[in-house]
Every structure is written in structure tokens, then in C-alpha cells.
Write a protein that binds this DNA or RNA. Structure first.
Length: 287
DNA sequence: TGCAGTGTTGCTTC
DNA sequence: CGAAGCAACACTGC
């Protein structure tokens, strides 16, 4: 679920809510979620550290800690970071008008950090694919070494995109999903970007014209920026750190709309597997 | 009821 | 070597 816009939203929330606060302890009931160092050691080491900053790279969250270490977190498919007064979670009584989320929160929190403010930073993850790691700066750099550019950064230019694509082969949808091409795009925004650019997902990247690459470039910037403004897509169980939904799903054109009519030409939206993932597209509006 | 499908990614296999 | 398949896990919807 969480792609660039969702992780960016969570990062912005966390920046306001946890920076400057001190971790008084940690807890887990699923030690596999703590990938490095081993869970017990991790929970010991993190105690007493202050969170000095929170940033995002690709779909990763990076918590800057006061001892020069970094807590790296990945939400994978169904992870949520939630902030609440500790007693709400301890009492299994998350206050939300969203029953779906409440159920998940009360059932699927598998990792938590207690803060000196009496709040808890909780990691809820139904499918348990998400993880955290404690890393040095060097390890962090190594982890990110193979990632492509951040698409919303100023230095991600049209020329840069042309250069990257010139070295790639295969279906454009597959290329967009590769994190070493451009960082942070997943299945939702991959489909929405290609719809906006008017390019069919199975088009060979080398067959794209200069004009098509220009349209793709504009679509990447516009779709992702709009999705950040709307705080992400919640067609499934993504929620922000307060448990609220993002509303990009309301304006999405093709993702998970198989059989519905294209808003431009009324052709039914089709679905096809590309690189093991569902691609949704309009055969008329995308060439 | 059962099975395919789900936002991710990295490991295994061919 | 690259590409495809699958595993990690739990739930939804057809």
C-alpha cells in the first residue's frame, strides 16, 4: 500500500508529532519484525534516545536518533504508524470512528515505542511484512545506494529521466515499479501515471517517443504531487498517523477500476498482468 | 467453500 | 546474467 505519497504523508505527520521526544522503551510481540540488531538488543539500545528528525527516502522512513544511529522502517503492504496516548492502545481501545481501522489497530500492533510524553508510536501491520532496523550512517548509505532519484526533487529533470530510460529494456510499467529507476512509485501510481501520460503499460520503453517521455515526466510529477496534497490513497487499508484516510483514491482514474468506464472516453477499464502485478488501463486513451 | 488477488521487495530458480 | 516465480502473512471478494 504505502507508496511515495503515503510515506511522505506519514513522514510529515511524524515530523510534527515525534521530533524532540525521547524513547523511554520499546515492545514487540513479533520479534521477526525487528530485523537488525536482534529484537532484544534493539529494544535495549533504543531506550533513552531522542528522535531528532524524521525523513523519507523512496518508501522508507528514517528516524534520526540522538546517538548518531538511524531507525529505518518499511511499511511494506499493510503497515501503519500510529500515534496515540499510551493508555488508549494498552486498553485495547483505540478511539476512531473508523471501525475497520480500530479493529486492525487493536489486533495488529506488533511493535511500539513509548515516548516521554506518555504517547506511544505504534507499528500496526496485519500481514507482518513491515520491519524496522537500527543502522549506522554508513549502513544507511549502503542501503540506499541502489535507489533511483526522488521524483519530486528538483534535480529529477526531464533529461535525467531520458538518460535513465535509455538504459532500460522491457515494459514501461515494469520499469516504473523498479526502485532503482525512480524511487517510490508502486502499483497504484504506476497505473495512474501511465494513464495520465497516455501510454499503455506494456509498451516497450525503447519504443517511447520524445514527446511520450515528456508526457511521462509531467505525469510523474503531477500525479505524485497531487497524491501528496490529498494525503495518499486509501482504497485498501492505508491510514495516516491519526488513523485518517487519504483521498487520492476518490480521483483515481484506472487503478482497481476494472470494468468501470474510462472518465474520458467511456471505454471499460481493462486489467492485465505485467511483471506479476495487475496493470489497469484504458485501451483508447493510452497508446 | 475455496481460491485468486492484494499496496512490496528480496531471495531462489531456471 | 537476467527474468520470472515465489515467499513472507492475513484478509477480502468472487
Amino acid at each position: 500500500m504505502p507508496e511515495l505519497p503515503e510515506v511522505e504523508t506519514i513522514k510529515n505527520d511524524l515530523k510534527e508529532k515525534v521530533v524532540g521526544k525521547t524513547i523511554t522503551g520499546g515492545w514487540t510481540d513479533w520479534p521477526k519484525m525487528i530485523k537488525q540488531p536482534p529484537a532484544e538488543q534493539f529494544l535495549g539500545e533504543i531506550k533513552g534516545l531522542k528522535i531528532t528528525d524524521v525523513r523519507r527516502r523512496a518508501k522508507n522512513l528514517i528516524f534520526y536518533l540522538s546517538n548518531e544511529l538511524f531507525m529505518l522502517a518499511h511499511l511494506k503492504m499493510t503497515g501503519h504508524f500510529l500515534i496515540a496516548p499510551a493508555n488508549l492502545l494498552k486498553d485495547n481501545n483505540w478511539q476512531s470512528d473508523d471501525q475497520y481501522l480500530s479493529d486492525r489497530v487493536n489486533q495488529f500492533i506488533h511493535f511500539a515505542l513509548y515516548l516521554d510524553t506518555g504517547e506511544v508510536l505504534a507499528f500496526s501491520d496485519m500481514r507482518k511484512f513491515g520491519w524496522v532496523k537500527l543502522l549506522t550512517e554508513k549502513e544507511l548509505d549502503e542501503t540506499f545506494a541502489c535507489l533511483g532519484p526522488e521524483p519530486l526533487d528538483k534535480d529529477f529533470t526531464l533529461e535525467k529521466l531520458k538518460e535513465i530510460l535509455s538504459k532500460k529494456r522491457g515494459a514501461i510499467k515494469k520499469i516504473l515499479l523498479e526502485q532503482d529507476t525512480i524511487a517510490g512509485i508502486g502499483n497504484i501510481y504506476g497505473d495512474e501515471i501511465l494513464y495520465k501520460a497516455g501510454i499503455l503499460p506494456f509498451r516497450e520503453v525503447q519504443s517511447l517517443s520524445t514527446e511520450e517521455i515528456e508526457n511521462l515526466y509531467k505525469a510523474i510529477k503531477e500525479v505524485l504531487a497531487t497524491a501528496v496534497k490529498l494525503r495518499g490513497t486509501s482504497t485498501s487499508d492505508y491510514r495516516d498517523t491519526s488513523g485518517k484516510k487519504g483521498i487520492y483514491g476518490d480521483i483515481r482514474k484506472v487503478y482497481r477500476r476494472t470494468g468501470e468506464l474510462c472518465p474520458e472516453c467511456a471505454m471499460p477499464v481493462e486489467r492485465q498482468k505485467i511483471a506479476g502485478r495487475s496493470a489497469h488501463f484504458c485501451r483508447v486513451c493510452q497508446k
